[in-house]
């Protein structure tokens, strides 16, 4: 077996089927670009999750003038209650889990509310007393918020305990579903490109059936007959996946970092190192896909 001969056959095949080769390149390029962006989206969601979960705090809302009577039978929380909550937070049972905590009084809550709802009519009607005084608790491990929640739920003068992560979870569930859907579509596209590769290779084999017949006649081994076709598929898919990798790098560099990053200064967006991690995966998937698709196509065609 001489490899130079096999390569020569593969190159002549590529030259003869330019249109088909271009179609393989395009379809692997598109589907792998989709796969690449979908996986970067997954990375982005994971990164944001880490970032925001770390920032998430547990809010212990104290009873205000408008708190429902069933939660706050004794009305607005008194100074005694604030002292009791502070004491509880400083107790040995809770202290090891807490990084720090601070108290937000009516005035601060009002100020934050006005900032948050600037221009919204609700900001005009709300009074200081209606807003809860709150203990904001930052945990060492945000996963262990249950300890605080359990301690203060039903605590006299506490209206509600809320882990901010529960809000984040909703957002991340949506983002996660979106990126999973993207991966699903990408998988379908990969499947269709595998089918296209195998159809193309079979057509290529059909157009060279005379040569294949002669090769078999003179005793060429099946491996030797198949190799140029498999190489043809692999070369085309490699070009396509290199283009896809390049596209993913370009998207990250020019769109994510170039356009999005200046607009979202407080968000940690995926960068070139992430794209460079995805790059070899895309090329690997492309090559493997082409090898399997063209190999199985040609094997079925050559069955004696």
């Amino acid at each position: 077996m001489r490899l130079s001969t096999v390569f020569r056959e593969a190159v002549s095949g590529l030259r003869r089927n330019v249109a088909m080769v271009v179609s393989i390149i395009l379809v692997t390029f598109l589907s792998l670009t989709f796969v690449g962006t979908a996986s970067l989206l997954q990375m982005q969601v994971a990164q944001m999750k880490n970032y925001w979960y770390d920032k998430a705090e547990v809010a212990v809302y104290l009873c205000s003038t408008i708190s429902p009577a069933n939660a706050c039978p004794q009305g607005q929380a008194s100074e005694d209650i604030k002292t009791a909550v502070t004491a509880k937070l400083n107790e040995d049972t809770l202290k090891p889990f807490i990084n720090n905590f601070y108290f937000e009084d009516h005035a601060q809550a009002y100020k934050h509310f006005q900032e948050q709802f600037k221009g919204n009519t609700v900001a005009k009607y709300v009074t200081k007393e209606q807003l809860n005084e709150t203990f904001w608790v930052k945990l060492k491990d945000p996963q262990k918020s249950q300890i605080v929640t359990e301690t203060f739920t039903g605590f006299a003068g506490v209206e509600e305990v809320r882990d901010q992560r529960s809000y984040l979870d909703q957002i991340f569930n949506i983002l996660n579903a979106a990126s999973l859907a993207a991966i699903g579509v990408a998988t379908l596209m990969l499947f269709s490109s595998a089918l296209l590769i195998s159809t193309t290779i079979r057509l290529s084999a059909f157009s060279r059936r005379r040569e294949i017949g002669i090769m078999r006649l003179v005793g060429a081994s099946n491996f030797y007959i198949q190799l140029p076709f498999v190489l043809e598929g692999i070369v085309a898919a490699t070009v396509g996946s290199l283009l896809a990798g390049g596209a993913v790098l370009a998207i990250v560099q020019f769109f994510v970092q170039g356009v999005l990053a200046p607009k979202l200064p407080f968000t940690n967006l995926v960068g070139l190192p992430d794209a460079l991690t995805v790059f070899p995966i895309l090329v690997g998937v492309g090559v493997l896909l082409a090898a399997i698709a063209s190999g199985s196509a040609i094997r079925r065609y050559l069955r004696v």
Binding site: R216, G219, N222
Partner: peptide
């Protein structure tokens, strides 16, 4: 065995009515 067929055919020459040469 089908994988031994190529080896077997190398010991046989075959000629056809339509020559079967590779045109390129």
């Amino acid at each position: 065995a089908s994988r031994r067929i190529p080896q077997f055919r190398r010991n046989i020459g075959m000629v056809f009515q339509d020559f079967r040469l590779l045109p390129n």
